[in-house]
């Protein structure tokens, strides 16, 4: 156990080391960094603008008001932004396997995952997080919810657990590429596609699709169920109430599971050299 803990802290330290160096290196071009971050923020804000446009014609979407949707959207966007910042670059592993530079990571005394994830660490991704937080903040202020400290904590946990679940999905996508070096696009259909779906209320989509997403890709835990609970609404699947509290547990389980998948992928690479 102590050994595992030591290797974890070693990995985290290596990650921070590499990420820190990339940050310093981007900061040498400060103006360019600011522009990129603002651009990133604006680009992801366009999504929400589309929702705003929709609401200029209607008052409610699937029975949800605009502030409620802002809450959904903001929570997902922040979770996803965090995961993208931390682990978004892991998807480049397929590229590295294809061009052969993956080998160079294996000869360094630092965990491969830390190297892959921190490579080209892009602080400009803070732009998406900032945009998500802004929308979330407005949603929190405008939605018809009686906020208590407990509810605020619940929202915070939901966002963090959501980020962890997205991290697990990124990690699974990266691991998958050891077996299929062109899998990057397949993985994107899960992560980026999943993001778009979560930003709309669940009743907009067909019930079977919703059920599939809840159980096949447990992204729904990111915000649907918890936020529905915050808003005091019934979920369209009529799941028992405790399910919406399972976010952190699901996150931990998923991270553990995808961690094993990553290790299996790495082992498969080392035995095939593909």
């Amino acid at each position: 156990m102590a050994e595992r803990l030591a290797s974890w802290s070693h990995a985290v330290r290596a990650y921070l080391l590499i990420a820190g160096m990339w940050v310093r290196s981007t900061m040498t071009y400060r103006a360019s960094f600011v522009l990129m971050a603002v651009g990133n923020c604006l680009a992801s804000a366009l999504d929400f603008v589309a929702i705003l446009l929709m609401f200029s014609h209607i008052d409610a979407l699937g029975g949800f008001t605009l502030p409620e949707i802002a809450l959904l959207y903001g929570a997902t966007c922040t979770s996803f932004g965090l995961a993208d910042l931390i682990l978004g670059n892991a998807e480049r592993v397929g590229q590295r396997v294809r061009d052969g530079t993956f080998d160079t990571l294996l000869v360094r005394p630092v965990p491969v995952l830390a190297q892959v994830a921190a490579d080209r660490f892009a602080l400009r991704r803070l732009g998406r997080i900032a945009q998500g937080l802004a929308v979330l903040g407005w949603g929190v202020a405008a939605a018809d919810v009686a906020w208590t400290p407990l509810k605020a904590l619940f929202l915070l946990v939901t966002v963090v657990a959501g980020a962890a679940i997205f991290c697990a999905v990124f990690l699974a996508g990266a691991a998958f590429q050891f077996w299929a070096a062109d899998a990057s696009e397949v993985a994107n259909s899960f992560t980026y596609g999943g993001v778009t779906m979560l930003q709309y209320p669940p009743t907009v989509f067909a019930r079977d699709l919703v059920r599939g997403v809840t159980f096949v890709v447990p992204l729904a835990f990111v915000n649907w169920l918890p936020v529905l609970r915050l808003l005091g609404r019934d979920d369209p699947l009529h799941l028992p109430g405790w399910v919406s509290l399972c976010g952190p547990l699901v996150a931990v389980l998923l991270l553990g599971l995808t961690g094993l998948v990553w290790r299996a992928g790495l082992r498969s690479y080392r035995s095939t050299g593909s």
Binding site: L106, V107, R270, S271, G273
Partner: peptide, 13 residues
């Protein structure tokens, strides 16, 4: 392939 095994990149069969 030999070098890759000597560096630990590949696992020998």
């Amino acid at each position: 392939t030999t070098i890759k095994m000597l560096t630990g990149i590949l696992m020998p069969s």
